[in-house]
Design a protein around this nucleic acid. Structure first.
Lengths: 120, 120
DNA sequence: CCGATACTGAACCATATAGTTCAGTATCTA
DNA sequence: TAGATACTGAACTATATGGTTCAGTATCGG
């Protein structure tokens, strides 16, 4: 289970690491498209685009359906929410870390003031 | 092919695509650490971890400071917010797309009702 | 000063990735 | 039915990636 979730999350991050694939997601955000549409739009062979779409589909970021000759691609399930959740969690850790630093800085400032007063 | 990463955003996504590097970010979320600390924690050579840290630093996700022999690594600037912003934007497109589909479905339902009525 | 520690750089290796071409297969259309 | 269209799979190329070892260099502690 944990292994599964880890690998799914990993697949999503890997899929998002490529700028062409992020572009495809944006494109599909506007309307569904065929492999041909996408290949044209990104100046790439059908085969190349087909691979990108498969990576996105594996990661759960798009879904596809073949109707006759045409594979219709559309934006996928809620998988991206897992990526967003990871980032949110990281940001929380990170905010906490910065808060801790802030406190240290505040302590130092307070200490300075005490030093000032005791020196005069 | 020649993957020159024009954008900082791309570097961040690429950095996040590796699960070890995401682990390092989580680890640094708890406290700062040296290369040695991280290498030990992730069962990896110093050289290997050094490379990961450099990737994270290039992406602006961590900052480092060398004090004497030791390189202190800590969680970086607000760079991750750009990643979060991209995802948010994508999710908006995507919600809009689903809303549009919902409307179509609603239209179809209405049409069915009309058909029913006109057939009787 | 000497030895241990902490890292860095270069070279290397195996595998993964992004792309191609070419040769199909299946489906639509005239 | 013939030909165009839409895709798929296999094989191949070039480069990137994640890791290693080994040989330094710089710094710390006794």
């Amino acid at each position: 289970m944990v292994q599964y979730r880890q690998s799914v999350l990993d697949a999503a991050f890997v899929a998002l690491a490529d700028s062409t694939r992020r572009g495809v997601l944006e494109r599909l955000g506007r309307s569904e498209a065929s492999i041909t549409d996408l290949a044209d739009g990104f100046h790439m062979t059908l085969t190349g685009m087909s691979k990108h779409v498969r990576v996105l589909e594996y990661a759960g970021l798009v879904t596809t359906e073949k109707v006759g000759r045409v594979r219709h691609c559309r934006i996928g399930t809620r998988r991206l929410e897992e990526v967003a959740a990871w980032i949110k969690r990281y940001q929380e850790l990170w905010d906490a870390r910065f808060s801790a630093l802030d406190e240290i800085v505040e302590d130092l400032k307070r200490q300075e003031k005490i030093d000032e007063r005791t020196q005069h």
